[in-house]
């Protein structure tokens, strides 16, 4: 009796220890590589205000941080560069404070500077993305200052379409990327002298504008149909944007080749629905008809008409 209880307790304790070790090692893995090192930078650069010891006045001073240099550590550690130290991309001289003013003039890396030609990142097609981007209005109508970073903040960028994200999450994330400038006058005028037009008024031809913006990405209509990239980067001039409703609202909807190509193949099982992949998260008028229901409705309607025709014939014959 005693031995059995002792054995059970020993087994339970052992299992708990093994489980704890597993959880601990998993947690340890999740801590970003340069977490401790970056704390020093985030101490000021995650705050709106920072304090420092002024060696000249010999006083502790409180200053407002330039909002363009405030970063959210939580977003940074969710991002694709989470295991980087700040000084992997920025000059090591930034570690001392006050920062040397000339450091601000240092050139910034573009995606291709690190990822170009690297077989490890081949599946992301950085070269093709750059080529595609160079055709877009972002490249042709702006100077070379319009870099990848204008849309993809390296301090928080997440490759949404390569992760386990829902279509709604992908749409929200990608559209927020566009809205950061196209729905924000301050950011818009960082690169343009013209006034930012209101998104609502330039899209007023769309019925239920808000639902469209929540369900599909801006790039569904604003990129080239010929774009074969995983995420389209050739942003077209506004005159060339898609305006024909049936390109999406039809059985051969273009959305299957763009937004819904990220769906797992498993969810594409039809159960009679045309474009069933879309049905997992949305309903698209004209694109989600059910073949069986269609057939049934044609049969019922046909039988009704046949019945009426038969009745008419009998009425004529028996007149």
């Amino acid at each position: 009796m005693f031995n059995k209880s002792f054995l059970s307790i020993t087994l339970l304790i052992t299992l708990c220890c093994v489980f704890n070790v597993m959880v601990a090692s998993e947690t340890a893995e999740k801590v970003p590589a340069k977490f401790e090192e970056n704390k020093h930078c985030f101490q000021c650069h995650s705050q709106q205000f920072y304090t420092f010891d002024n060696p000249v006045s010999e006083k502790k001073e409180r200053k407002a941080m330039n909002p363009n240099f405030v970063y959210n550590p939580q977003e940074f550690y969710k991002g694709v560069h989470r295991n980087f130290a700040c000084t992997d991309c920025h000059a090591p001289e930034y570690e001392s404070f006050p920062h040397n003013a000339e450091l601000r003039l240092e050139p910034k890396y573009a995606c291709i500077d690190c990822h170009g030609g690297d077989p490890e990142y081949e599946k992301y097609h950085f070269e093709a993305v750059e080529e595609d981007f160079n055709k877009s209005v972002h490249a042709t109508r702006h100077s070379e200052d319009f870099t990848c970073w204008m849309c993809h903040d390296p301090h928080s960028y997440r490759p949404m379409t390569h992760g386990d994200h829902t279509i709604t999450e992908i749409v929200t994330y990608h559209n927020n990327t566009c809205k950061r400038c196209h729905n924000n006058s301050y950011n818009f005028q960082l690169i343009s002298d013209s006034l930012k037009p209101a998104l609502e008024s330039i899209h007023e031809f769309l019925p239920n504008f808000e639902l469209h913006f929540a369900s599909v990405r801006c790039i569904e209509c604003h990129t080239s149909e010929l774009d074969t990239l995983w995420v389209h980067h050739n942003i077209l001039p506004k005159e060339e944007a898609r305006r024909n409703c049936v390109e999406c609202h039809s059985s051969n909807t273009v959305l299957l080749g763009s937004l819904y190509k990220y769906q797992n193949l498993e969810v594409r099982k039809s159960r009679g629905f045309v474009n069933s992949a879309i049905l997992n998260e949305a309903y698209l008028i004209g694109a989600n008809r059910n073949e069986y229901v269609n057939l049934l409705s044609f049969i019922i309607f046909g039988l009704t008409l046949a019945g009426i025709a038969f009745h008419i014939i009998l009425r004529i014959l028996k007149k």
């Binding site: 409703c245 049936v246 609202h249 039809s250 059985s251 051969n252």
Partner: peptide
């Protein structure tokens, strides 16, 4: 609307809506 198609439009989609 239900049978809208890029190749054949019974009525224009936006007008139908």
């Amino acid at each position: 609307l239900q049978y809208s198609d890029a190749n054949f439009e019974l009525l224009k989609f936006d007008i139908s809506v």
